[in-house]
Amino acid sequence: MDALVSKPAAQTVHAAIEAQLPALRRFSQRFTRSASDREDLVQETVMRALRSSHQFCPDTRLRSWLFTIMRNTFNTEYRRRCREPVGLDDGLFERASISAPQEWAVRRSELRSALSRIPPRSRRTLLLVAMGVSYIDTARLCACEIGTVKSRVNRARKMLEDEIGRPDAF
């Protein structure tokens, strides 16, 4: 039932949401121990509920609907936090620069040398695909068919593998 809720009905939903604040605060204790994090979770839940109040179906229990929003909000925030490094300042990764160890310098030299021994057309095709150019665009740039691009790339990869080993060995 995605029908729009009339203004008085929306105000009723808003008042009912406000009446559920104590229950939301208690439920938030299941997710986090920090009082400020609990308040943030309740606030975000209420914001999302108010934003989506027009989607609320009167046949649904409001408390269950709000608890579902809270659980989903927590899960989304938890997954986002897991992806972000904690305790590091924002510019650390940009400032941290370490020169390549000798082994990487040798590998780069080996790769350049091996690339120079690949036939020019295959080398160009491989480099275009490695830079992210699509097979279709590579075919246009090299004035050949897609099948030719694929076979050139495959042969060039095989030549590199035979010469310097598997890429995952780096």
Rank of each mutant, 00 (worst) to 15 (best):
Val42Thr: 06
Gln43Cys: 06
Gln43Met: 08
Glu44Pro: 02
Glu44Arg: 04
Glu44Ser: 06
Glu44Lys: 02
Glu44Asp: 10
Val46Arg: 01
Met47Lys: 14
Leu50Asn: 02
Leu50His: 03
Leu50Asp: 02
Ser52Ile: 09
Ser52Lys: 13
Ser52Glu: 15
Ser53Trp: 05
Ser53Glu: 13
His54Asn: 09
Gln55Met: 08
Gln55Val: 07
Gln55Ser: 15
Cys57Lys: 08
Cys57Phe: 06
Pro58Ser: 12
Pro58Asn: 09
Asp59Gly: 12
Arg61Lys: 05
Leu62Trp: 00
Leu62Ile: 02
Leu62Ser: 00
Arg63Thr: 07
Arg63Phe: 03
Ser64Ala: 06
Trp65Cys: 03
Trp65Val: 04
Thr68Arg: 10
Met70Asp: 00
Arg71Leu: 12
Thr73Leu: 03
Thr73Gly: 03
Thr73Ser: 05
Thr73Pro: 04
Phe74Asn: 01
Phe74Asp: 00
Asn75Val: 13
Asn75Met: 13
Thr76Ala: 15
Thr76Lys: 14
Glu77Val: 12
Glu77Ser: 14
Glu77Cys: 07
Tyr78Val: 04
Tyr78Cys: 11
Arg79Ser: 10
Arg79Asn: 15
Arg79Trp: 05
Arg79Leu: 11
Arg79Met: 08
Arg80Asn: 07
Arg80Glu: 11
Arg80Ser: 11
Arg80Lys: 14
Arg81Ser: 10
Cys82Ile: 11
Cys82Glu: 15
Arg83Val: 11
Arg83Pro: 02
Arg83Thr: 11
Glu84Trp: 07
Pro85Ala: 15
Pro85Ile: 09
Pro85Phe: 10
Pro85Gln: 12
Pro85Thr: 13
Val86Leu: 14
Leu88Asp: 10
Leu88Met: 09
Asp89Ile: 10
Asp89Met: 10
Asp90Asn: 10
Gly91Val: 07
Gly91Arg: 15
Gly91Cys: 13
Leu92Lys: 12
Leu92Ser: 08
Phe93Ala: 11
Phe93Met: 09
Phe93Pro: 01
Phe93Leu: 15
Glu94Cys: 11
Arg95Leu: 12
Arg95Cys: 13
Arg95Pro: 11
Ala96Gln: 12
Ala96Met: 15
Ser97Ile: 10
Ile98Val: 10
Ser99Leu: 09
Ser99Met: 07
Ser99Arg: 09
Ala100Ser: 13
Ala100Thr: 05
Ala100Asn: 06
Ala100Arg: 10
Pro101Tyr: 01
Gln102Glu: 13
Trp104Gln: 10
Ala105Phe: 08
Ala105Thr: 12
Ala105Pro: 03
Val106Asn: 05
Val106Phe: 05
Arg107Leu: 08
Arg107Tyr: 06
Arg108Gln: 11
Ser109Cys: 06
Ser109Glu: 05
Glu110His: 06
Leu111Ser: 01
Leu111Gln: 02
Leu111Met: 09
Ser113Met: 10
Ser113Gln: 08
Ala114Asp: 02
Ala114Asn: 03
Ala114Lys: 01
Leu115Glu: 01
Leu115Pro: 00
Leu115Trp: 01
Ser116Met: 06
Ser116Arg: 03
Ser116Trp: 01
Arg117Phe: 03
Ile118Ala: 00
Ile118Ser: 00
Ile118His: 00
Pro119Gln: 13
Pro120Leu: 08
Pro120Thr: 08
Arg121Gln: 14
Arg121Pro: 05
Ser122Phe: 01
Arg123Lys: 06
